[in-house]
């Protein structure tokens, strides 16, 4: 796709497009937008591994391909292992991996494929120290199989296997903090990012590229279909997730925490503002909302302390 020079100059993102239209993501899909950003950051010299997830479908059925980069489809549990193997082979074959002009090896997996079935392979990848980037696009449930809860589904959310209803059968466990599990591996670089803040996401992608060793980014990627939210609200919801400190943006770099958004000095917006745009939270009682708010407050305080002590 040709982009006029005049446009390139003013754009805050690279103009090159390596993610093509005609893909089969739902309207307003945060996953496809995220993958578009990743390919803008890394360009063609990239090998992407995608396990079973929405992106399997988004990337196109054979012989079609949405991506303009090498793509290997792999099994659900294996993202961390497959990118380890790709990286090892690149090194064996004499390629420079990662860094400014190196080949980028990217694992692009959903929250189920990361927080649940792929957690072991992720841990192995992080601990062994491969030069690759693992991106978990977090839409907070198994969306490709039809909206079932994952370890990353938040408290109070409706999913098809935590369906709400008269008996008030909802997700009663808080969101698994995958980023904390990742940081426990003391890798050089880990960060959270959001579809609503692409410049921030691209900055983090570039940092992940430069820093040797394994990098991990957890990207908040709204799913209108699974969240029962209007398709045009995807970015607004992602923004509110940050502003309410439900999904704060921060970086962990060589042992130091830095909060990007929201400002630690200000009171975050109430969680209610994030919840009300999404049908998946409609079964929550006032008490449920309060429970979630308490969790958000607690996690936010914890993060602020970490940034204070290890900043």
């Amino acid at each position: 796709m040709e982009i006029p020079e005049s446009v390139k100059k003013r754009l805050t993102l690279p103009a090159e497009e390596h993610f093509y239209a005609g893909h089969t993501a739902c309207q307003g899909c945060g996953a496809s937008l995220g993958l578009r950003y990743v390919l803008k950051a890394y360009g063609k010299k990239t090998i992407v591994a995608i396990p079973a997830c929405c992106s399997t479908i988004i990337a196109g059925a054979w012989p079609y391909n949405t991506l303009d980069a090498n793509l290997f489809h792999t099994a659900f549990a294996t993202t961390g292992a497959v990118i380890s193997g790709i990286e090892a082979a690149l090194k064996a074959l004499g390629y420079k991996v990662k860094g400014e002009d190196g080949v980028m090896v990217v694992g692009w997996a959903g929250d189920g494929g990361t927080a649940d079935i792929g957690l072991q392979a992720l841990s192995g990848f992080l601990e062994r120290g491969h030069d690759a980037v693992y991106i978990m696009y977090d839409n907070e449930a198994y969306m490709n199989t039809g909206i079932q809860r994952s370890g990353s589904t938040p408290y109070g959310a409706w999913t098809t296997n935590t369906p709400g209803g008269k008996r008030h059968f909802l997700e009663k466990r808080h969101k698994k903090k995958v980023i904390d599990i990742v940081i426990a591996h003391e890798i050089p670089y880990a960060a959270t990012a959001s579809d609503a803040y692409p410049e921030d996401f691209l900055r983090k992608l570039r940092k992940a590229q430069k820093i040797p060793g394994p990098s991990f980014i957890q990207l908040f990627a709204p799913c209108p279909t699974g969240w029962r939210s209007p398709t045009d609200k995807s970015i607004e919801i992602a923004r509110l997730a940050v502003q309410t400190a439900y999904f704060p943006l921060f970086e962990y770099e060589n042992g130091k925490y830095r909060i990007n958004m929201p400002s630690p000095k200000k009171e975050p917006k109430p969680i209610e503002e994030f919840l009300k745009l999404q049908g998946r939270f409609k079964y929550m009682t006032k008490e449920d909302v309060e429970t979630l708010q308490q969790w958000v407050n607690h996690e936010w305080e914890k993060l602020k302390k970490l940034a204070e002590v290890f900043g």
């Binding site: 792999t74 294996t78 292992a81 193997g85 790709i86 090892a88 064996a92 392979a121 841990s123 062994r128």
Partner: peptide, 21 residues
């Protein structure tokens, strides 16, 4: 690659072989 399971062993082999090694 000293992997953390046989499932990952074969997955890493697959990634490496697809890359051309």
């Amino acid at each position: 690659v000293p992997v953390e399971s046989e499932h990952s062993a074969m997955a890493a082999c697959i990634g490496a072989s697809a890359t051309g090694a």
